[in-house]
Design a protein around this nucleic acid. Structure first.
Lengths: 179, 179
DNA sequence: CTAAGATAGTCGCATCTGCAACTATCTAAA
DNA sequence: TTTAGATAGTTGCAGATGCGACTATCTTAG
């Protein structure tokens, strides 16, 4: 067991002028910090599923998730926009997924700059195996909340997302083209 | 104005076997994704304050925030633990802050492996200038929520943090030594 | 038709950050 | 006391990712 940090106060060492006299800010009540820390922690909790088990990193998972949810194939640019991930990151993720033959791409006859992406049979199999595991993990994380709290949480997240100009659902993005 | 993605559906291109037949997952309702995206976006919204204006990155800001909130000086390790940031990251942040003379360190006579860190006068001045700006930004981001929603949100965040074993407040960490 | 500007995707570069090894120091047990 | 193991902090290294330049292609204005 490591030395408890509570020992620090008892050590008698104290700098009278270490802190400020003005307003302070408790990092642990500061929402941006809390969101960052929580997102990092939740990602770490999930990484066991897609990272260790299937060798996928987050951008790769986002590509599969986008392709798996939509009925039609879509471009890398579309994935980049609606997941808010840089296009170079998506490009690398797609390359990796193609190397592993989880995703394939076909030329778009209407616009030869872009490619239509879709999962291969192998990719779909992985996707279908992965989804229930991720859902379970998500439920595990949310299991500390009541049904009402989960609803509240989803609602509040939605409001903040909306006020920051983030898309709400992929169907919205389909309909409006907003991103 | 860019070509709307809604055009994609109308293009007539459709892969009948692109999607899966099993359960799908809407990324935009998936809490881990939403948290990641929200944290990224909120950080970006704040970076204008501490990054562009004061040349601080996130680890450096976390060091100042921890030092500013506590009355007594503390070790780099303490900051690493309670902000959940890797000790090497904190080490580099402290080095940068010392170079800019925003933070200074003194040897701990009781344990010569560690150093006690505290802000310099210059660091405190920056901190006091920065805090109101960050508070304002946070309030801006939360302005889309009612008072009740903010309370709910804070409560829910706290519950999830607790269930993931994250500290709740720095005072808790002081008292219990838990981190 | 031509030219200018926009867009899709790729890639080199720089930065950030976690990991792990390393030094110095402390602690505990033989 | 001596020695093994733990801890604080630093640093080299590698992987991830954003930025910007680049090519190829499309669109639009003249």
């Amino acid at each position: 067991m490591p030395k408890a940090f509570s020992d620090q106060g008892a050590a008698g060492w104290r700098a009278d002028n270490a802190a400020t006299k003005g307003p302070r800010l408790d990092l642990f009540r500061f929402v941006p910090f809390r969101l960052n820390r929580l997102a990092t922690e939740v990602s770490a909790a999930l990484s066991g599923e897609y990272q260790e088990r299937y060798g996928l990193d987050i951008p790769e998972w986002r590509v599969l998730a986008t392709l798996g949810f939509r009925d039609d194939a879509c471009s890398a640019q579309y994935i980049a926009h609606c997941t808010r991930t840089h296009k170079s990151t998506i490009s690398r993720a797609v390359t990796a997924l193609m190397t592993r033959q989880l995703v394939e791409r076909v030329e778009n006859e209407d616009d030869r700059r872009e490619f239509r992406l879709r999962m291969t049979r192998k990719g779909k199999a992985l996707y279908e195996e992965l989804i229930p595991r991720l859902r379970r993990k998500e439920q595990e994380i949310l299991s500390c909340l009541s049904a009402q709290e989960r609803k509240d949480f989803a609602l509040v997240l939605g409001k903040i997302e909306k006020s920051l100009g983030l898309v709400q659902t992929s169907r919205d993005a389909d309909k409006t083209g907003a991103y």
